[in-house]
Amino acid sequence: MASEKIRKVVEMSGISFGVRVGKQGNRKSWSLSRLGTRFWSWFWFILGALYFLLPLYATANFSLRMERDVIGFKAYIRAFEDPEFLKTFLYSNVLALLTIVASIILIVPTAYWIRLRLPEARRIVEFITLLPFVVPAIILVFGLIRIYSSPIKIPFTDTTLFQPLTTFEVGTDILIVAGYMVLGLPYMYRSVDTGMRTVDVRTLTEAAQSLGASWFTIIVRVILPNIRAALLSGALLTFAIVVGEVTLASFLGVPAFGPYLFLLGQHRAYEPAALSFASFLLTWVAMGLIQLFTGGQGQAAGAH
């Protein structure tokens, strides 16, 4: 009786949202509705996948057609043979590694301390980490050049601390790594913070302290291994940003991979496509390695 009543109400209202209200017929409409939901889920998934995969396919396809009517790797060979490629690629990789190490040294203790002792500062720090999304890289690089192109003095004295950073190679490298740290800040901080959310940082810290561990030991042996997956994600994102970055590298005049790729794109057609696709594959390999090395940890964190 009750189910009949419900069916009537549903029919009268003209609503059909897959509620199981009757016997055979209603069961049928319920499964049809479920089928409909599954169809739309797959539809949106495939649409999304195409959005990402089609340009990728087009790039890969284009990069293989350097020679007329022949599918081959000539564009890749020519791109990799260029000595500038290796030089700029290695340079950008070194910059990326330095940026990642410096970011970890700065961000892990900061995120840890905020979680442990200064939760009230979290909103402010989150706001700061979002600034790179709001302030364009061009503003950042002009700010850096303006401040560090003159000697740095101790305030209110004539004592020079160090010469303008933009005037020598190491100085420029320091500036660009600092700039990259700012650009990678939202990704690295959020990855680390999310990683710390999955472990009970406070209790683990107290447990380690009661066992005699110092702050350094706690961070290196307890915190870092437990946020390994998050660190790798942050590192990968930072790596991707640094290797492809153009603005900072161009204005600071460093021989990085981003400006090289940009210049190549202005003069050649197939090689940039080949290098873009190769970079994409490299990223995927890196993601695969992350999965490989952190699979166990994900399981542990889930159980925890």
């Binding site: 009970d200 209790t203 107290e206 380690a208 307890v222 542990a300 925890h304």
Partner: peptide, 13 residues
């Protein structure tokens, strides 16, 4: 001083 916590606080790694 040794301490035991309600949430065990074992190091997952």
């Amino acid at each position: 001083v040794g301490m035991i916590f309600q949430s065990y606080a074992l190091f997952p790694n």
